[in-house]
Design a protein around this nucleic acid. Structure first.
Lengths: 92, 92
DNA sequence: TCGTTATTTAGAAAATTATCTAATTATTTA
DNA sequence: TAAATAATTAGATAATTTTCTAAATAACGA
């Protein structure tokens, strides 16, 4: 798993907003796009980056593609962030 | 606090490595630069971005500038990541 | 089958980011 | 005070990223 792709994916506000949307329920690409002012191809591109980072899963159902969030890759980010917090002056 | 700067700062591997270094102990800009193959001005630039994101603190002591990690801003990232994990199917 | 809808792919322009060398600023020390 | 050291700022270039419009692909429904 290329963690760099995960951090890169999280660096964009639009992509973070997409994840926030998917937190509540799975959505089609079109439903996701409706929440933003940017074009559908741009959203499609963002979805592709999220997919490459394995932060979302895409499943085609008929003519729709449903996107769902995948939080398992976030575990490594979480672990790293926590490791930064337990820092130096850690005497008793 | 502009959280976008934090996510942007974390998106670069060199900057994440810098934070890993600072986890152990405070270091001068030069000591940090010694760990990488890129030029000092580039490291200086990365340090500046980390500073703008408030992920590090810089303190001048004589002719040196000591950098230290500041993890308080990571709390919000942590909280957001955790909020993504407690997702939809959350029935009883 | 044909027109419509959903979505992506292609290709290009614009914006941002990473990196470099050279120059500058500030501090120390001989 | 002059030379050396630490680090940044300036300015440029290269690489990456974001965004767009137009075109392509796939599935649906009359």
């Amino acid at each position: 798993m290329k963690m760099n792709l995960v951090y890169k994916a999280l660096a964009d506000a639009t992509r973070r907003d997409i994840l926030n949307l998917l937190k509540n329920k799975d959505l089609t690409a079109g439903e996701i796009a409706d929440h933003f002012r940017i074009s559908k191809p741009s959203i499609s591109h963002h979805l592709n980056l999220l997919k490459q980072a394995d932060l979302v899963h895409a499943e085609k159902r008929g003519q729709y593609i449903y996107y769902s969030i995948n939080t398992t890759v976030l575990q490594d980010v979480l672990t790293w962030l926590l490791s930064l917090q337990g820092k130096k002056g850690e005497k008793e």
